[in-house]
């Protein structure tokens, strides 16, 4: 991996920004160059929210991701808006519990689905669809290994909240194994 540009998009409240933070933080623990840039303003209050993350072995130029190598879509408007704007050899992972589409893998892009929101409620992991879809995305993109993300997660989530860490890890695991 030299540079991986990631765009995570969904509704405000789905944990889009935190997913991005996990990726950026994992990069940091591996001594990579990383940048994390959220959309901000009114849309963060219930509207659409998205987050650009770049992980690179070189210095990062623009932190704005317009043609992602990995698109993680968590709602229909985001999927519709960005699915045709990915880079060559890109990957799209979307939450099939919330998004319906005819869009298929092609020469340019590989598309993966995971019903993250449904898996979250089926497995008593409320609000952790973001971690489930993140697990799947990391697996399919290979941007990091599972252990790298788990190790970063352990450092990121306060040791004062062991149950929170446990649930996040469980959700990531669920995504990896889907």
């Amino acid at each position: 991996m030299s540079t991986c540009k990631i765009l995570i998009a969904g509704f405000g409240g789905q944990g889009v920004l935190f997913s991005g933070k996990v990726l950026a933080y994992t990069g940091l623990t591996l001594d990579k160059e990383v940048s994390w840039l959220p959309s901000y303003g009114p849309e963060m209050r219930g509207g659409t929210a998205n987050c650009s993350v770049t992980v690179s072995s070189e210095q990062i130029g623009s932190p704005i991701v317009s043609e992602p190598d990995l698109l993680i879509a968590m709602n229909q408007p985001s999927f519709d808006k960005y699915c045709e704007e990915t880079s060559d050899n890109s990957i799209i992972v979307y939450d099939s519990a919330l998004i319906s589409t005819e869009f298929k893998s092609n020469d340019k892009v590989k598309v993966f689905e995971i019903p993250a929101t449904r898996l979250a409620s089926d497995n008593d992991l409320p609000g952790l669809a973001n971690m489930i879809i993140l697990g799947k995305s990391v697996k399919e993109s290979g941007v990091f290994t599972k252990d790298q993300v788990f190790d970063a997660m352990k450092k990121l989530v306060s040791s004062k909240k062991p149950e929170l860490l446990e649930k996040n890890i469980k959700a990531l695991e669920l995504g990896f194994n889907y």
């Binding site: 950026a24 160059e33 940048s35 994390w36 840039l37 959220p38 901000y40 932190p63």
Partner: peptide, 10 residues
């Protein structure tokens, strides 16, 4: 600018 303020980097 807003980008510098809102962006996270190591």
């Amino acid at each position: 600018d807003g980008t510098m303020g809102q962006m996270m980097e190591p």
